[in-house]
Amino acid sequence: MPEVAKNTVAFRGGGFVPGTRRWAPWLAFLVIIACWETASQLRWLPALFMPAPSEVVQALHALLVDGKLVAHIVASLKRIVSGWILGSLAGITLGFMMGIFVLARSVGLPIVSALFPIPKIALLPLFILWFGIGEPSKVATIALGVFFPTVVSAFSAVDNVPRNLIRMAQSFGLSTRMIVFKVILPGAMPGILAGFRISSSIALILVVAAEMIGADTGIGAFVLAAGNLMQIDQLIGGVVLLSLLGLGVSALLSIAEKIVLRWR
């Protein structure tokens, strides 16, 4: 028999596989903070403009010791949670109506598009007139900021519920109300939960604006006061608190998604 070249086939399908490395973000955080601390210790960063991470930690620790930290977080969480719930409920209701009823959609869509881009901070003086300088104006600021993106996400979530499921429900004689609660609501959950991610971030962003008016406790008020007092370490500490809060909310939402969207 003549000699025939025999080669093992080489693998060439590697890479391009989506995936995550669990340790990578932690390492990146650690490296960034370590570099920052080192630069501060070596006085490459002027203390006036950028405090060292250790100073930020000290500032937060001092705040924790005198009990103000918990008070600030509790005050802000109350505003964030109540504003977010109010804005979300109203937003989901309107978004559903726009997704289901042609008239609501025709009227609602242009109005929402017109009002969505208004910076809520610009309306703050108006809120003081309407709601005073107590809790209502703060909650309203957050609720309004949450409302519009929730309307849009709820509307498109309803729009994305497969039509064939609705026709199926109709073919079995379910009433409109039953279709809304048994088909559209659960079917829109993925979109609504995705919208929650955005709206919860907005609530966190707006708490600073909301606490500009008449608040002496709250993370936003704390950050503002630190800014006014040029206490840069506390300012950054407050910002770190806000982003930790953001991470916490995001983790909670991930858990909620795992439970509610088990079927995906």
Binding site: N164, L165, R167, M168, A169, S171, F172, G173, L174, S175, M178, K182, V183, P186, G187, M189, R262, W263, R264
Partner: peptide, 24 residues
């Protein structure tokens, strides 16, 4: 109806999908 794409509610179990036709 029986549908080409089955039209099952993905968030309901097999028994739950059957129940949908009966519940009301």
């Amino acid at each position: 109806f029986v549908f080409q794409d089955f039209a099952l509610l993905p968030w309901r179990s097999v028994a739950g999908n059957v129940a949908l036709a009966l519940e009301h």
